[in-house]
Amino acid sequence: MQLKINKINKKFGDLDVLVDCELKVMDGELVTLLGPSGCGKTTLLRCLAGFEIPDSGNVFLGNQEVTNVPCNKRNVGFVFQNYALFPHLTVAKNVDYGLAVRSVPSKKRKELVDKTLALVGLNYLDNRYPKQLSGGQQQRVALARALILEPKILLLDEAFNALDAKLRISMQIELRKLVKKVGITTICVTHDQIEALTISDRIAIMNQGRIDQIGTPSDIYERPNTEFVAEFLGTANIFIRKVNNGVVQLARGLELSTNYNGEVTIVVRPEDFYITSENCKEGWIGTVAFKRLLGPTIELEIAVDEVENLLRLSIPRREGENLNVGKQVNVSLTDKKNLVVIPHKVEL
C-alpha cells in the first residue's frame, strides 16, 4: 500500500527529533531510512507504527489518514531490533499470535501458520521456543509473525544488527527477495550503508531529524545533495574551493565551470582517481601513506603537500600491486564529469 508522510514534526522535551519529514513511498517499494544514530530515523519509523504520535504532520496509508490511530488498530507489520519474540510461546504460537487475538477460526489459523512458516523456510521448527533458535531463525520468525497478518506496510527497525557479518549479508538479500515476492511496501531503518545499498529500491538519508535526500542508491551515491550525504554513503574526498567568475580550480590543471557563487564543495569518489607514475600536467603529486587490500580493490591514502586531508583512492588490485608506502605517485581524475559540485554550507 502507498505511504505518504506529510511534514512530520516531533519533539522530545526541547529536542527536535523530527523536523518537517516528508516521504512518499510507492506500493510495493522498499525504502530505507539511513542515518547515524540519533538522527531520528527510529522515531520516524515508530510514528508510522503508532508507537509515537507526531506533534504535527500527517501519515497516510493508502487514502486513509492514520496519524492518530492507536498502534493496535493500524495493521502495520513491525520487526523489532531484538525481534521481540514472545519467549514463552513456541515458534508456531508466536506466528499465530496476531490471528489468535483476532479470533480467526482455528482451522484457518493452522493453515496460515503453516503457509507463512513455509514462506520463511522454518516449518520444521514450529515447536521450538525462541531461545532455541539462532539469530537468523529468530529474525525469520519475527518476519513471519508480521507478514501473516497481511499488513498494509512492513517496518523493520535495525533488523540485521543482531546478526554476525556473514549471515547479515545473506539475510539482507533473502529479505529483499522475500519482500519483493510478497509485494509488500517496506520501510527499513538502518545506520549501515551496505545494508541500505543491498536491500533498497530507494534510500532516504536522515540527518539531525531531517530527510536530507531521497533517491535510488546510485542516485544518492553519484549525485549527493549535501556534504553530509556524500560523506555518509560511501567514501568521499571533499574539497572546498572558491568560485572565481564561474570557474573553480580543483587542482593543478584541473578546472571546472560552475553556476554557483561563493564557496563550493567538490566531492570526488575514491574510484574516480587514477594513478600514473609518468609526469602529468594535471592533478596532484603525492606519496603513498597507507595501503590495504580489500579483495578485488586496493585502498590507498596519498599525502599531498597542498591538500590538507589525505586523498583516499580505490583502484583495482592488479594496478596497485607495486605501489608501496612511501612511493611517489601522480594522481589525476578519470573523468571530470563524475565530480559532484555542491554549494558549501557552513554547518552550525
Binding site: G50, F51, N72, F78, F80, L149
Partner: peptide, 12 residues
C-alpha cells in the same frame, strides 16, 4: 518491546 510487539499485532 514485547508489549509493543503484542499491541502491534493487534492485541488490546
Amino acid at each position: 518491546s514485547l508489549e509493543q510487539a503484542s499491541l502491534n499485532l493487534g492485541a488490546s
